[in-house]
Design a protein around this nucleic acid. Structure first.
Lengths: 241, 241
DNA sequence: CGCCGGCTTGACCACGATCAATCGAGGTGG
DNA sequence: CCACCTCGATTGATCGTGGTCAAGCCGGCG
């Protein structure tokens, strides 16, 4: 069967024209093109706020593409501590790692629509198409780099620096126009658990940035970056020299 | 050309019989088997303590296998802070990520022997052999999982817990017999920069574990794990309930 | 309107960073 | 062979960031 010719029915999401310059998201998006041949196997599902999409330890026979909403990948310690490894935004791929079981729990941060695809179909596709293989590799590499980048942040940076870094990365991934408000779809608690600090430290970081005029906070779930260059300096610890 | 039949000349390192149960190292080792067909392209090199093997930003046209010694992958912040993403031990593969440039600097912790292979040869090999492809994927996935595991530790754990976790992971990767001394090839400073704490905190963690009888320290570069179960409890924060 | 959950702010405290002094092993030279 | 030097490890004293606890605050929703 000639799967490669199955390019009818263009998707509806605006994935082609993006101004974001992050290499990570770049490779994620381009892989998307190839997924169109998998459309016939894709199942669309809907999740409401805080629902679980899949759990740590579940068989990982399918992977997901985020259509709308935000997903968090998290792991729970027995004593209640939680760590969020990554947030996934529309266009991102989730559950792509080559293992029999999911190593993270995926939960809906907001209301979420995903499409899921069977992994063995992708493998079949990869067996015949070197381009698909290459893009799978690129995606995995990008995920690894992203994780290592975050490792660096958690290993070296203080609370304020971590939060500034988080804002910049989020701005890169969502196509915010400079000066326009950016959507903070996740709550403070989620951000805190992602950055390895407490919710209070997040609030204090916001307050500090607000006082210095680097950001404006119209409301809890929106934020405006007033000075990206200075924010970058804060994130890199080049702030108070 | 029939690369698959090129199985002459067995390697000298003891890679086949391992008692270690870590899934991470497992997949790293098994990929090794396939690298033998790359022997003809492999170049052996030697590095002394603290020498640089490759630098962040260098073209990543070759990847490396550690024959002997320990390597650290690190990144330097402009203000002098340093983070060590990973240590690599004999048998490990380094510089495997699918990017044009290395994203980390690799340095020799001890005297090191590596074999380097051209990446395009591996790609050529992968084009014809699905098994090689599968193992490359497994290796990347394992690296990603390892990074995420470390993310979890840096995000949630305190100094003592991080150090206990580090010891257990190291014990898993090196084939220490329970009760026998484990080699700590890296210095305190390296461990500290890996765990995101200071060198003094490492010393105090060691002192605390020693006082509780969980470890014995014959000398600076050796350490005996006396009670793995309790050490595991400490690492997981199930220590003082 | 009043409740409820998430956010914010302040007061206090502790873990770990910083600074400083000492120890100890390995290496070099007299 | 020992004295000396150097570098890393260790331990103690002090300080500060960020965690903890507690009290408002705000916005959404019944």
């Amino acid at each position: 069967m000639s799967v490669k010719l199955q390019l009818v029915e263009p998707e509806l999401e605006p994935l082609s024209t993006r101004s974001g310059c992050g290499k990570t998201t770049q490779t994620l998006r381009t892989l998307d093109h190839h997924l169109r041949v998998l459309r016939q196997f894709g199942a669309q599902r809907h999740f409401s706020r805080n629902q679980t999409i899949f759990r740590e330890g579940d068989p990982a026979d399918r992977f997901y593409r985020v259509i709308s909403g935000t997903i968090r990948l998290c792991r729970h310690a027995p004593d209640g501590r939680r760590h969020i490894a990554e947030f996934h935004l529309p266009g991102d791929l989730v559950g792509f790692v080559d293992h029999a079981e999911h190593s993270y729990t995926a939960e809906a941060v907001t209301a979420v629509t995903v499409k899921s695809y069977p992994r063995n179909q992708l493998e079949r596709l990869g067996a015949s198409d070197p381009d698909v293989r290459s893009r799978v590799l690129m995606h995995l590499s990008a995920s690894l780099l992203s994780a290592q980048q975050h490792l660096f942040v958690l290993g070296c940076r203080n609370a304020k620096e971590r939060f500034a870094e988080f804002l910049l990365r989020l701005a890169e991934r969502t196509d915010v126009l400079w000066g326009a408000p950016m959507e903070l779809t996740m709550g403070r608690r989620d951000i805190a658990d992602h950055l390895g600090v407490t919710i209070e430290s997040i609030c204090r970081s916001i307050a500090a940035l607000k006082k210095d005029g680097l950001v404006t906070v119209p409301n809890t779930h929106q934020l405006i970056l007033n000075n990206v260059a200075k924010l970058r300096a804060v994130a890199d610890g080049r702030d108070a020299l």
